[in-house]
Design a binder for these strands. Sequence first.
DNA 1: AAAAAGATTTAGGCATACCTAAATTAGCGA
DNA 2: TCGCTAATTTAGGTATGCCTAAATCTTTTT
Lengths: 218, 218
Amino acid sequence: MTPNKEDYLKAIYKLGGMETLVNNKQIADTLQIAPASVTEMLGKLKREGLIHYEAYKGSRLTSEGIGAAISLVRGHRLWEVFLMRHLGYSWSEAHEDAELLEHITPPRLIARLDQFLNHPAYCPHGSAIPRSDGQVDCMPLQPLNLLFVGEASRIRRVTEEKGLLDYLQGLGVTIGASVRIVEAGAHEGPLTLDLDGKRVQISYKAACQIYVDETARL
Amino acid sequence: MTPNKEDYLKAIYKLGGMETLVNNKQIADTLQIAPASVTEMLGKLKREGLIHYEAYKGSRLTSEGIGAAISLVRGHRLWEVFLMRHLGYSWSEAHEDAELLEHITPPRLIARLDQFLNHPAYCPHGSAIPRSDGQVDCMPLQPLNLLFVGEASRIRRVTEEKGLLDYLQGLGVTIGASVRIVEAGAHEGPLTLDLDGKRVQISYKAACQIYVDETARL
DNA sequence: AAAAAGATTTAGGCATACCTAAATTAGCGA
DNA sequence: TCGCTAATTTAGGTATGCCTAAATCTTTTT
Ligand SMILES: [Mn+2]
Ligand SMILES: [Mn+2]
Ligand SMILES: [Mn+2]
Ligand SMILES: [Mn+2]
């Protein structure tokens, strides 16, 4: 296993490769690698028993591949917790450095880190940390932009993308904060939020990347 | 800079490449790489301005190379402190995993780790941790085997080699412990030590890898 | 000073993981 | 169903970093 292969597995995992077939273009776009190179690497991953892959059809993780991907994600998110909780990292910094650390984290380090951090259930961005047995629990969430005006909910997760994270953290967005849409600009205009009691304006595009509790819809 | 090149720089540094010329064979032995491959890599490091290198003569670090090597060693030793102090690692485990972590530790992570650990001066094996400005302080030490029978001193550093570390830690050897040679077997036979009041037998070869304060010799 | 021994370099290869350009295939709409 | 487009694969090539075997240089020994 190499860092490169790990990144492929993680990409396939995040693109839904546990359930559905993932097509090459998505992987190429995610990893910023030429489609031809993706084809080549998928051949190797298949030969190594990490993915099911049929030419022109797409790829899906084998149970071995799932294990590798989940272990990687587990390491990544545990590092994020450590970096923010103990080293004072920002949202985007934590994600960036965890991206490196994940690749050189042997199982014993993952285990001890988990213990040191007291078995956290979520990363600082709100994603669930897979348990050591591979279990991942998920809550039903919806993007903030789909909330009705006036409807209240709670922020549970944000998409991990450097620019977005810096923007949101600058605005004071936090996981667990209560939120209500005060006003929604027309044509996907900015949203005015009541965020933990404070009035905040946020772009529509950013709101699509913030996930809140699915409140009961009648 | 790649992990491989970093390991070359670190090897040269540890082989005395700040002061003296280091010859290729030493590097090849240290890194377990064929001499031909070493020649090739040294050419690249020279082209990149990290070492002075003259064919058949040997190599020496440039100031840029010194900076890179020292930063690597600093990261390595800070990780060791973290792994032992907070994650319950053993001497050899800490060294092993730090060997991986050192290569993907950006400057900001080194800085925050240093702060989190409260600017430790020594790694768990007793080596000085270079300061952020590159300064490294060293005490005058001597190998334990050179101590006279009956003479007392204090253990300050051990050589970092997995097998040795496990052996010594199993024996109860610690940094800072007081030590006195009770009896020395002939022909480089085992030494009987008084280690913090406890009687311990240790191989001559291992004693050569334990460094103690240079006590005043008359 | 020559020969032997040891260290180093050169030459020729291999594996990994990328790329671009040129086929090829699949899927969709006319 | 034919053809167009988009996705994918194949072909050919690059850079890194390693290897072995064969020169070549240096140092030591006789
Ligand atoms: Mn990564
Ligand atoms: Mn995260
Ligand atoms: Mn290393
Ligand atoms: Mn150490």
